[in-house]
Design a protein around this nucleic acid. Structure first.
Length: 581
RNA sequence: GCGCCCGUAGCUCAGUCGGAUAGAGCAUCGGAUUCCUAAUCCGGGGGCCACAGGUUCGAAUCCUGUCGGGCGCACCA
């Protein structure tokens, strides 16, 4: 962890100090509410390096008008040696320009921070459990899982960079009815592997070819033991066996995307440990669960609906539309009942919980939020809990929609995807859109038009930097920070862009939006490409200027630090910073 | 019928706890390469920020309603 304070944070403190001084002077009332004061770079760089809205936000409290208050703030700020100009603009913005050495120092901070530059202590070591993927263990991962997997993984990494202690967790749904279907399908393939003609895969079974291997492996492992046994003999064994094989497949798929979870939590194990029973008992004790009858669903006709008494969780007390059953009429746990206990379990070891879900689960967000709210209320400490919904990815191939259906056994897998376009393209592309908006992913397009793909643009910037360093070494130039005063306006502009990185990490972490890092990197890469091209018009603006070794050394130092920031950003996204394209 | 998400340039999308003249890429038009990687750069044209109200010094951003698209709506996972 770098203990360096970012330039923006440093100035936020300086302005805070000015406001304190104004309180002492009586210009501002004591204990003025400063929560809306911001210090940020202005949108338009022509306005300066930093802008604060302090005067506008505080004018009312000071019983003054924004411009008059601004003048008093400016008077204090001008005493600071790092401030070369402080101007009042528009409705009362204060625009500051900083002395070049402030920016050049930041370059040194990047060098000193290295791979840690951009990390923040913001999270203060809070333990965040982030659950993502959690695909049912009934087959390989397909594109439907991809976006949530990438977004979850990048978010985990982002929060880590922002000073949280992150647990990456996968909930294995190995207790439901579809796992029985999996087991039966696997048993069928097992008999097939032993030479039986099983004909067409019956309706309601998983037809996918990936089960052939499972059948073969089972045949090798069990021999003919379970061929003629009654189902109740082999079902539990095949369930566990098939789930384990499927999880092997899923873990391999995740590895292709560079994803590795810390914890795989089994629903079956949760139930075996009677966690749902414990949760129910606790809930009944607190009058959060009662036996009641559900209303008939509206707007959708259900043929065989009949009123049944079930144990219901009072989720309406916490904003849900309806109370929700935690057990089915046969006494088994509903998915929700087990999930409730699961969240209770996660909350024991975390200060905050995050779930990443597909948009098709949107309907169940309210009930699980209600459950966590109920739990944390009972425990006396509210657990911050966020469900992030990742919208559907429409997969296209040359403009034509590709159907994804697990049932038919015909779907585009993660493995296919990564093989065709590569991990970096998949990851970066999934992060170039905010996750709550739907997106199209045209298979053909990202491959063919690869040069238009933003990931290459960013990687190219990094590769260019590596290339220039190789070139420089051939000519015996090395980067050096000895005389950075050589750097001029063009370089400062680039440094300013790079210096945003720590802010971006914090802002993205606060908003829990890893895609911001992807957009930031694109902008930084653009700034570097623009800088590079200055040398095309004017040879003296190239990074390597043979006649000027000091200037060259300083520019190389700059290039190294830009490369460092790109690398650090790509690391958050889990994308490779290549040295050559 | 109800709930959640989305609606910004021809297309795909950004847009900082509300801030200054709303930005990129693609497409289109015009330029830059004897030169560190042109997978790059520079410039032009292109916008009732879906619509209508409200909140305020100030709204693409917050609130309400309408329209349009997606997803989901008994003891399925």
């Amino acid at each position: 962890m770098s203990d360096h304070q970012t330039l923006y944070a440093a100035f936020a403190e300086k302005i805070d100090a000015v406001l304190s001084a104004l309180e002492m002077e009586g210009t501002l009332p004591p204990e003025t509410d400063r929560s809306n004061v911001s210090v940020e770079p202005p949108r338009d760089p022509a306005h300066g390096d930093l802008a604060t809205n302090a005067a506008m936000v505080l004018a009312k409290q000071a019983k003054s008008n924004p411009r008059a208050l601004a003048e008093q703030i400016v008077e204090h700020l001008q005493r600071d040696a790092a401030v070369t100009s402080a101007e009042i603009a528009g409705p009362g913005f204060i625009n500051l320009r900083l002395a070049p050495h402030s920016w050049i120092d930041e370059l040194g901070a990047i060098a000193a921070g290295g791979d840690d530059y951009g990390k923040s202590a913001m999270g203060a070591g809070r333990r965040v459990n982030i659950e993502y993927v959690s695909a049912n263990p009934t087959g390989p991962m397909h594109m439907g899982h991809c976006r949530g997997a990438v977004v979850g993984d990048a978010l985990a990494s982002l929060l880590e960079h922002a000073g949280h202690e992150v647990t990456r967790e996968y909930y294995v749904n190995d207790a439901g009815g579809q796992v029985d279907t999996l087991a039966r399908s696997a048993h069928l393939r097992y008999r097939e592997a032993l030479g039986e003609d099983i004909g067409a895969i019956p309706e309601g079974m998983y037809p996918g070819d990936y089960l052939v291997k499972v059948g073969e492996a089972a045949a090798a492992e069990f021999g003919e033991r379970f061929v003629n046994e009654p189902e109740h003999e082999w079902l539990p064994i095949f369930r566990a066996y098939a789930v384990e094989r499927m999880m092997d497949v899923i873990k391999a798929d995740l590895a292709l995307l560079g994803i590795e979870h810390d914890v795989f939590a089994s629903e079956a194990a949760l139930q075996a440990a009677q966690k749902p029973e414990a949760a129910e008992a606790w809930m009944r004790e607190h009058d959060l669960v009662y036996d009641g009858v559900l209303e008939k669903p509206k707007g959708k006709t259900v043929d065989d609906w009949e009123p049944v008494e079930l144990p219901l969780f009072r989720s309406t007390k916490f904003g849900d539309d309806q109370d929700r059953p935690i057990r089915k009429s046969d006494g088994k746990w509903t998915y929700f009942g087990a999930d409730l206990a699961y969240h209770m379990q996660k909350a024991e070891k975390a200060d905050a919980l995050i779930d990443i879900w597909g948009a098709d689960h949107a309907g169940t967000v309210k009930r699980i939020k209600a459950a966590v709210a109920a739990l944390s209320q009972g425990e006396g400490k509210p657990i911050p809990f966020d469900v992030k919904l990742v919208q559907m990815v429409q997969l296209l191939r040359g403009g034509e929609p590709v159907k994804m259906s697990k049932r038919s056994g015909n779907f585009v897998t993660i493995a296919d995807m990564v093989e065709e376009v590569g991990k970096d393209v998949v990851r970066f592309t999934m992060l170039t859109r905010k996750p709550e908006a739907q997106m199209d992913f045209d298979f053909a397009k990202v491959v063919e038009a690869s040069k238009d793909n933003p990931v290459f643009y960013v990687q190219y910037a990094h590769a260019r930097i590596c290339s220039i360093l190789r070139k420089a070494a051939e000519q015996d130039f090395a980067p050096s920070a000895d005389d950075l005063s050589q750097l001029g306006e063009d370089e400062l502009a680039l440094i300013k862009q790079a210096a945003q990185f720590p802010r971006e990490v914090e802002a993205a972490a606060r908003a829990r939006e890893p895609h911001r890092i992807a957009f930031y990197l694109y902008d930084l890469a653009a700034a570097f490409h623009a800088y590079w091209n200055l040398g095309n018009d004017d040879a003296r603006k190239r990074i390597i200027v043979a006649q000027e070794p000091d200037l060259t050394a300083a520019r190389l130092f700059l290039a190294v630090q830009i490369g460092q920031v790109i690398r650090n950003g790509l690391a958050i996204l889990g994308v490779e910073a290549v040295e050559e394209l």
